[in-house]
């Protein structure tokens, strides 16, 4: 019978008897299966060759060997909050709270369960990013607030291609993460200079918004577009913060024209429920009036 037949495990090379566990190169032994369950999500290894399974087990060999000796701490090593009895996530070499696990899953663009197959050393750098911490510290420990530097180092919108999934995920490249210490120390002065330049050019206003694109909105019903008198003004906040129901003014040769901002959205065109657009942020202003007098490249003065 096949069950009693001696087989060679393609992962560790040892002989074993029994049904074994499925991988792309055949059945592997239960000893390896205990380790595989720690570093792979459920059934993920079914379609992987033995070489890849072996490589991952070798990568996490130390963490797997020490798995049973890890004790649950009182506080989360990432946020420092008290670690709840049940609502926590077990990593390979640590315990973290559920909130940090969910944040890590969002930052890594993986499922919540995949975080349990990682080590703390892989997750901690995500929380050191300037956008997550709200700023960055230089080598001497001086902390620089990210929001005040976005006027010169705004987040750069990009897209992530996730294999096996249709479409793209929105992501941001943070220039603050790759700045040298000298550039970081010079950044506040550069931000102040930029602010002064904008105020000298456009005057003192609550916010200044540069228009990139104007789009007329529509409802899609059964393949037919029904356009409505609502527009999305896409662009970037050059200075200041914009909140709901702010008044935007555009200067034309024959006079100024006013717009009332009904809704705010971020760089994703379908989002329209933000409360505030911060300095340096790309986003959209939703306006419910005819917008034929605004052009790409225009500057909207918000008060």
């Amino acid at each position: 019978m096949a069950i009693m037949k001696t087989k060679i495990c393609p992962v560790c090379g040892k002989e074993f008897k029994g049904l074994g566990n499925i991988c792309k190169d055949g059945d592997y032994c239960n000893e390896c299966e205990k380790k595989v369950r720690l570093v792979f999500e459920e059934d993920e290894e079914d379609y992987l060759p033995a070489a890849k399974i072996r490589a991952k087990l070798n990568k996490y060999a130390d963490a797997i060997a020490a798995y049973d000796s890890v004790k649950k701490p009182e506080t989360c090593p990432i946020c420092g909050e008290k670690l709840p009895k049940l609502m926590h996530m077990r990593l390979l070499d640590a315990y973290i709270c559920m909130g940090c696990a969910q944040k890590a899953a969002a930052l890594m663009h993986t499922g919540y369960g995949a975080i349990g197959c990682k080590c703390l050393s892989e997750i901690l750098p995500l929380f050191q990013r300037a956008a997550v911490r709200g700023g960055r510290a230089d080598a001497s420990g001086v902390f620089y607030d990210a929001d005040s530097l976005r006027i010169v180092y705004p987040l750069i919108h990009t897209l992530l291609e996730v294999p096996g999934e249709d479409g793209y995920d929105v992501a941001f490249i943070d220039p603050l993460d790759s700045l040298s210490d000298e550039d970081l120390q010079a950044a506040p002065a550069l931000a102040k200079q930029r602010r002064a330049e904008l105020e000298a050019k456009y005057g003192t206003h609550k916010a200044i918004f540069e228009v990139d694109k104007i789009k007329k909105l529509y409802n899609d019903s059964k393949g037919h577009k029904y356009y409505r008198n609502e527009y999305r003004i896409g662009g970037r906040v050059l200075m200041g913060n914009i909140t709901l129901r702010d008044q935007a003014v555009v200067k034309r040769a024959e006079g100024t024209k006013e717009l009332l901002i009904r809704k705010l959205g971020d760089c994703r065109e379908y989002i329209s429920d933000l409360k505030e657009l911060k300095e340096g942020q790309e986003g959209g202003l939703f306006v419910e009036s005819s917008l034929s007098f605004v052009y790409p490249g225009d500057i909207l003065l918000i008060d």
Binding site: T110, I156, T158, L159, E161, P163, G164
Partner: peptide, 23 residues
């Protein structure tokens, strides 16, 4: 798990935005 990568092909010479092939 397969590697997730960003699709930008560089950065705009004028404004610094990411150059996205789909746009």
């Amino acid at each position: 798990m397969a590697k997730i990568k960003s699709i930008e092909k560089g950065f705009c010479s004028l404004c610094g935005r990411a150059l996205l092939p789909n746009e």
